[in-house]
């Protein structure tokens, strides 16, 4: 009964937020209703917190363990989300095929380790480069000809590319899942918390890549050009930025990270299959939106939030509700602050 109760609470909470968000314009003008709604919200918050505190205090250790797992899963989402957010920031396109780039990264890593016999870190780089190449090819073939087409057409093309890559993947790799050979089997203990070596490595590599990305975007010339194009494409052209090349570069860098995510996920969850990109791809995109699409730290934040909440839902409620939490959070954020947690509100020019 408890999970249902928790979700019912959540649903009422969402409904109230919706009401509040809709009435934002006149809401503060009415002290009685604001008091009323405020009161209910506080009650609900206390109820929800109470519910979770009971669950957590039963086994505090378990909670932290799951949170840490969530962080490592979340960091993979974050890596994928970064590609989404960068591409969206620069061409305003939801690149649905990005999840498949991640799949390609996983397979490249797999063949790198097995057929080619690369050591892991070498395979990581191989996977990243293969994915990046795939990303740029997709951009050149499918998106570049549509640069001035209606946004919806590009979106549909992206969906088409996603399907195409998935099915070509099925054709080439076969639809039977493959097992990624175990790479890291060590186990660390900090106090009473277990840390698998593989998860630590996932986190460490992700962290390093994000630092590298931050450096690239902030201090290098191509990185600055990327930011310039995403902030104002015309102005970027006026200072002499080659916009087409910068867009390709963005796809390259974003796909590089997705490729890394592909192989990293495979060392924790070793089953890889051609359709593996769909759900993580969607959720990573959701992560990007939650954090504020187009904003690099936002993607990381969103990825971590989704990773942790998914793991907690799995641990405390049921794994079958896992897929709902990401989308639930998404809708909540969209209704309260459509531009995302770190997003800035933009207004239409009339």
């Amino acid at each position: 009964m408890q999970p249902v109760f928790g979700f019912a609470l959540f649903a009422v909470f969402v409904a109230l937020i919706v009401v509040l968000a809709r009435n934002k314009k006149r809401f503060p003008a009415n002290p009685i209703s604001s008091f009323f709604f405020g009161f209910i919200i506080v009650l609900l918050a206390i109820g929800a917190a109470n519910y979770f505190m009971v669950a957590i205090s039963a086994n505090r250790l378990y909670f932290w363990q799951q949170t840490i797992y969530g962080v490592s899963l979340g960091s993979v989402y974050a890596l994928i989300a970064l590609g989404y957010t960068m591409v969206y920031g620069i061409v305003r396109l939801i690149n649905f095929a990005h999840g498949e780039i991640y799949m390609i990264g996983a397979y490249a890593g797999f063949f790198g380790v097995t057929s080619l016999g690369f050591p892991f870190y070498f395979a990581l780089i191989f996977a990243m480069l293969t994915a990046a190449l795939a990303g740029v090819i997709v951009e050149r073939i499918a998106y570049k000809p549509l640069r001035k087409a209606p946004r919806l057409a590009v979106l549909i093309t992206a969906i088409g590319m996603s399907l195409l890559l998935q099915n070509v993947g099925q054709k080439i790799f076969g639809s039977i899942p493959r097992s990624f050979p175990r790479q890291f089997t060590g186990l660390y203990r900090i106090g009473e918390i277990n840390l698998d070596q593989s998860r630590v490595i996932v986190f460490a590599v992700t962290f390093l890549l994000m630092v590298a990305l931050q450096y690239f975007v902030t201090f290098t010339k191509p990185g600055k050009a990327m930011r310039a194009v995403s902030q104002d494409r015309d102005a970027a052209q006026m200072v002499g930025v080659n916009v087409d090349r910068t867009i390709s570069l963005t796809f390259f860098v974003g796909s590089l990270l997705a490729g890394a995510a592909g192989i990293l996920v495979a060392i924790v969850f070793p089953q890889i299959r051609p359709t593996m990109g769909l759900m993580p791809g969607l959720k990573a995109f959701v992560a990007a939106v939650i954090g504020g699409i187009g904003i690099i730290p936002g993607a990381v934040l969103g990825g971590l939030i989704i990773g942790v909440s998914e793991n907690l839902v799995t641990a405390y409620i049921s794994s079958s509700w896992r897929d709902a939490i990401a989308f639930g959070l998404l809708i909540l954020i969209l209704l309260v602050k459509p531009s995302g947690i770190l997003g800035r509100n933009t207004r239409e020019k009339v």
């Binding site: 010339k221 600055k224 050009a225 930011r227 310039a228 902030q231 104002d232 015309d234 102005a235 970027a236 006026m238 200072v239 002499g240 930025v241």
Partner: peptide, 26 residues
């Protein structure tokens, strides 16, 4: 040939120094 566009079109999320730096992009 450098253009100073109508409505300024500075890069809003960059600092003043970064904007100037972008100007010297080529």
């Amino acid at each position: 040939v450098a253009q100073v566009p109508e409505g300024r079109k500075v890069f809003p999320q960059m600092t003043v120094a970064e904007n100037l730096d972008m100007g010297a992009y080529v």
